[in-house]
Every structure is written in structure tokens, then in C-alpha cells.
Design a protein around this nucleic acid. Structure first.
Length: 503
RNA sequence: CGAGCUGUAGCUCAGCUUGGUAGAGCGCUUGGUUCGGGACCAAGAGGUCGCAGGUUCAAAUCCUGUCAGCUCGACCA
């Protein structure tokens, strides 16, 4: 019965633990629509924070937002062969545009069949490049730096809340450039933006570098990624940035006149991150007491719990809570908080025991909790509890009320820093090196990433995946540069790459 | 899409083998006692047993179909 209140521990069952967090923290639930989730207010609030942070970074790097259609005519979709093939097996298709009522039953009207089927976008390169054709005439129209916030559909068989659902929310940047060099610079710039967001907002350390040929986006020349390690040692692709070369410009006939008066195809990039980041956030920081959210993404930064067993005892606590909340809201705003006020909530629950209330707020991941009881009133002080250190160890007693707002501000910044450092230490501690295929096979059974030499071929990568279920997650830019020989074929290898089992 | 398992109260599940008209715990409501780490007592509300057929005097229970979910495989942000 007491166990009913606790969530499954990570050690007992990591998958159950994840589901418990998503449920109990009110982030999302499965809907009655196959493969589709409902994102609940607490989860959506995190997404809104992510959107705000990312959107600011996109604007800072010169991008603007626009919106393109959900439906893509099949003929557009077909034009870039590699991409069409890559997504063919997971597309939802609209074939009719009308229903009719027959004997009180609604059915698809066979008279209303579309002449050309519409694909629900799995990604928008085709519809966007079809549009760019008319927007790009001259080198003066370039670069074109556009982002869209949208939903996309990829018809997945097996889904997991946030990590893989048939419909998900994301942003997709689609840029056009006059030269390949510029487009490549953009590809790199945006993966670095993702790295910055992951590390500084999400407090989630990531590896940055190209994907292998086998793991890249269909239609791309190459794909750069940020790759994160979850607490169970598995990898999560958290964001990708693609150099598309002139593939889409050629497919959609997007030509412009250069300064020299020559006609040339435009160069392209695309890049995206999705609500999957929320799954990554959960599996990077949360613990057996529930969700842990870094302050920069927390929907609520501070919760104040007035205590007291009688109305007479509680009243001064509530008044002090309101005063404190106001003082916190009036703290100077800066970039750390996105120039927004700190969000403070007063917990007016009079029904449940204090311990129950504390546990509930920990479950929901609020970074700082303030406890205000009769004993604090006597001393004109309060108790601060930090979520990154659960239970009594994370509490500071007797903080004078006058100092509390500044202490809370400092605490929030410290939690943000601590979460990143803790996650980085964990990640670095689970990075191993394998020097032979036998050693690799042994190591891959343990959680974590593995540095290993690989000959650069698709065949070897496929063989490794088939035999060990591990894939090449990333070829990190700042990894060791030592050369060696492929652990499988013995052929030369310029540098080690990172293998892992992935979500 | 292949294999296995599961659908009964808001949630977790018992009941099904051997058909007889619906149960528990948690949660919820009300009252009382509690209250600085997940309190307790009492009363109460809440279910077309996933859905559709079939067998039967009678189906949560047996049979057929169907839908959904979970686990494992192939695919993916």
C-alpha cells in the first residue's frame, strides 16, 4: 500500500520507471488514437520553455519563422528519390475529402476520392523546396533562413511516450544558400546551437559530430547530430542538422542567378529537434523520487508550502508565503530566466500531510521548495529544499526571510550547474574503449558508449549492428584523433567512433 | 507486420478452470481526529465486465470474430 505511492525504481525496471515519471508528473498519456499521445499541461509547459529557448537561439542566428502545409501532394514527395524511399514505410496518406451518412452510419464517400493522394508530412523538405522555387531567383534572395514549428506524422509500429509516437511536435529549419561552403557552415552552426541548448538549457551533455553513412537522413549529403546518454547507458539522438547539398534544389529545380550572371542550383540545409527532447530530459536527470527538471526549463521554479495544523497557525505562514513569493517575482530578470520572472507557486493544500505534499512536488520536479511553518515564523526564517538532492539532505534550515529571495536565485543557478556536471560525470564515466571485436562484444553488454575503430564502410557497420544491436551513434568532432585498425576487418581507421545501443 | 500475454470501478488487480445476476486495495466525496517527510476512523458515491456476434433457462466466466494495450523481434527523431 505504501508502495502504491512510490514510483518504480530505476534499478527495478528502467522502462517502468520512465512510464511512472511521465504519468505521475502529469507530462503525457497515451490517447485512444493509436500511437498518439496527449501532452498534458505539465509536459506541454516544458515544451513551451524549450520552444522559447530554441526560438531565441534561432532568431539570434538570423532565422525567421514561417508555416507550410501539413499535406504534401504525392508527386512532390516523389521528387527526391532517397527521401521518398526513406520515409515510404511510415507515411499516413489522405485519399478522400468527404464523408457521408448511410443509414445513420458515417462512412468515407467513395465519390470523394482525391485525384492525387496527399501525404501527411513526415518532414517538410519537399513542400518547402517546392515553394522556394518561386522565392529564389537571384543570389540577392539568399541566404533564406526559415524555421517552422509544426507537427509531423511518422507511422510507427511501436511507440513510447515522447521518445517515439506516430505524431510529434518539432521544429524544422530549412535554409537555402548560394554556396556549398555557406550551407556547410550553417549545418555546423545549427548543430552547435543544438549543443548549446542541450547543455545550457537542458543541462544534458551531448556528443557532437557526423552520423555514419548508414545513419544519416535520407536525402542528405551528410548529417551532424547531438547524441546524449541516458541513465541506463543507452544513446538518444537528440537533434540532427543535415547538409543537403544541391539534392533538393535539383529535385525541385531551384536555380538562381549568381553575381557573375551564371545559373546555379541553391544549396540546402535542414535541422530539427522534437518533443523527444522531453524524453531525453527525463532520462538524463530524474531519480527514484520522480521528475527532475533543470531550472531553465522548469514550468514552476519555486513552490512554497505553508504549514501549520490549525487555521490560526497556518494563516501567518500563508501571509509570509505570499510576501516571499512577491519578493521572488521581483528579482532582477536576466538571460538565465529568459528575461521572465521566476515562477512561484504557493501550495495551499490543507488536506494532505506535509510529507505527502513535499513528495508530490518532488514527483513533479519543481527545482526549489520552500517550507514555511510555525517554527519558521518564530525565527522569521524558512526552509529551502533543492530537488537535485532529494530528501532531507537537500534541505537548508533557518534561512532568514530577508535573505531567502537571493538565496533561492543562487540555488536555482547552482542546481542548473550541478545537474549538468552530474550528468557529464555520469556520461564520461560510461565511455569505454574497445580495442578488439571480442572486447567490444563484452563491453556492449554493459550500459554506456564505446569508442572503437571502424573501417568506414556500411557493410561493417551493418554487421556490427546485426551481431551486437549496437549502432554508430556519432563520429565526434572532438574525440581522440589516434588512428588504428578496424576492430572487425583490420582495415585502417583514421579515428575512433562512438558505438552504443540506442533508443 | 510476425510471436507471446493482457483488457472487470478513476488506478492496480481478484473473480473465469467447475456459467447463477459484481469484489478488494488505492483514489474520490462527507464528517471527525491528525499535521516539519507519503496519517487514521466512520459513512458514502462510483462498473453496459474492451466491442460485436454465438451457445445457454442463465455468460465477466464457454465459443467465434474484432479492436486496443504491453513485452519481444524488423523500422525510426
Amino acid at each position: 500500500m505504501a508502495d502504491d505511492k512510490k514510483i518504480t525504481t530505476r534499478a527495478a525496471n528502467y522502462g517502468e520507471w520512465y512510464l511512472d515519471i511521465v504519468n505521475r508528473a502529469g507530462l503525457a498519456e497515451n490517447s485512444d488514437v493509436r500511437g498518439c499521445m496527449v501532452i498534458k499541461p505539465n509536459g506541454y509547459a516544458i515544451w513551451e520553455k524549450m520552444q522559447r529557448g530554441l526560438d531565441g537561439l534561432f532568431k539570434d542566428t538570423g532565422h525567421v519563422n514561417a508555416y507550410f502545409p501539413l499535406f504534401i501532394p504525392k508527386s512532390f514527395f516523389q521528387k527526391e528519390e532517397a527521401m521518398a524511399e526513406g520515409f515510404a514505410k511510415e507515411c499516413a496518406v489522405v485519399t478522400h475529402y468527404r464523408l457521408r451518412s448511410v443509414n445513420g452510419k458515417i462512412e468515407v464517400d467513395p465519390e470523394a476520392k482525391l485525384e492525387e493522394e496527399l501525404i501527411i508530412r513526415p518532414t517538410s523538405e519537399t513542400i518547402i523546396w517546392n515553394t522556394y522555387k518561386s522565392w529564389i531567383q537571384s543570389y540577392r534572395d539568399l541566404p533564406l533562413l526559415i524555421n517552422q514549428w509544426a507537427n509531423v506524422v511518422r507511422w510507427e509500429m511501436r511507440t513510447r511516450l515522447f521518445l517515439r509516437t506516430a505524431e510529434f511536435l518539432w521544429q524544422e529549419g530549412h535554409t537555402a544558400h548560394a554556396t556549398g561552403k555557406e550551407a556547410e557552415e550553417e549545418t555546423l552552426r545549427m548543430v552547435r546551437v543544438y549543443q548549446k541548448f542541450a547543455e545550457e538549457w537542458m543541462a544534458m551533455p551531448v556528443l557532437v559530430g557526423p552520423k555514419s553513412e548508414g545513419q544519416k537522413f535520407p536525402g542528405a549529403v551528410y548529417t551532424l547530430c547531438i547524441e546524449a546518454m541516458m541513465q541506463d547507458g543507452r544513446a538518444l539522438q537528440a537533434g540532427t542538422s543535415h547538409f543537403l547539398g544541391q539534392n533538393f534544389a535539383k529535385a525541385f529545380d531551384v536555380e538562381f542567378t549568381t553575381e557573375e550572371g551564371k545559373r546555379e542550383h541553391a544549396w540546402a540545409t535542414s535541422w530539427g529537434v522534437s518533443t523527444r527532447l522531453i524524453g531525453g530530459l527525463i532520462m538524463t536527470h530524474s531519480d527514484d523520487n520522480g521528475l527532475v527538471v533543470p531550472p531553465r526549463l522548469a514550468p514552476i521554479h519555486v513552490v512554497i508550502c505553508p504549514l501549520g495544523k490549525s487555521e490560526a497557525e497556518r494563516k501567518p505562514c500563508v501571509e509570509a508565503a505570499e510576501k516571499l513569493a512577491q519578493a521572488i517575482r521581483e528579482l532582477p530578470r536576466d538571460d538565465f530566466y529568459g528575461y521572465q520572472p521566476i515562477v512561484v507557486k504557493i501550495d495551499n493544500d490543507t488536506k494532505n500531510m506535509p510529507g505527502h505534499r513535499f513528495a508530490e512536488w518532488e514527483l513533479r520536479g519543481v527545482p526549489v521548495r520552500v517550507e514555511l511553518g510555525p517554527k519558521d515564523m518564530e525565527k522569521n526564517a524558512c526552509v529551502l529544499a533543492r530537488r537535485d538532492i532529494p530528501g532531507k539532505e537537500g534541505k537548508t534550515m533557518g534561512v532568514p526571510m530577508a535573505e531567502a529571495p537571493a538565496k533561492i536565485d543562487a540555488l536555482l543557478r547552482d542546481i542548473q550547474k550541478n545537474l549538468f556536471e552530474r550528468a557529464k560525470k555520469f556520461r564520461d564515466g560510461a565511455m569505454r574503449t574497445a580495442n578488439s571485436y571480442d572486447e567490444f562484444k563484452k563491453l556492449i553488454e554493459e550500459p554506456g558508449f564505446i569508442w572503437a575503430h571502424w573501417d568506414g564502410t556500411r557493410e561493417t557497420e551493418d554487421k556490427i549492428q546485426e551481431e551486437t544491436k549496437a549502432t554508430i551513434r556519432c563520429i565526434p568532432f572532438d574525440g581522440p584523433t589516434e588512428s588504428g585498425t578496424c576492430m572487425v576487418t583490420g582495415k585502417p581507421s583514421a579515428k575512433r567512433v562512438v558505438f552504443a545501443r540506442a533508443y
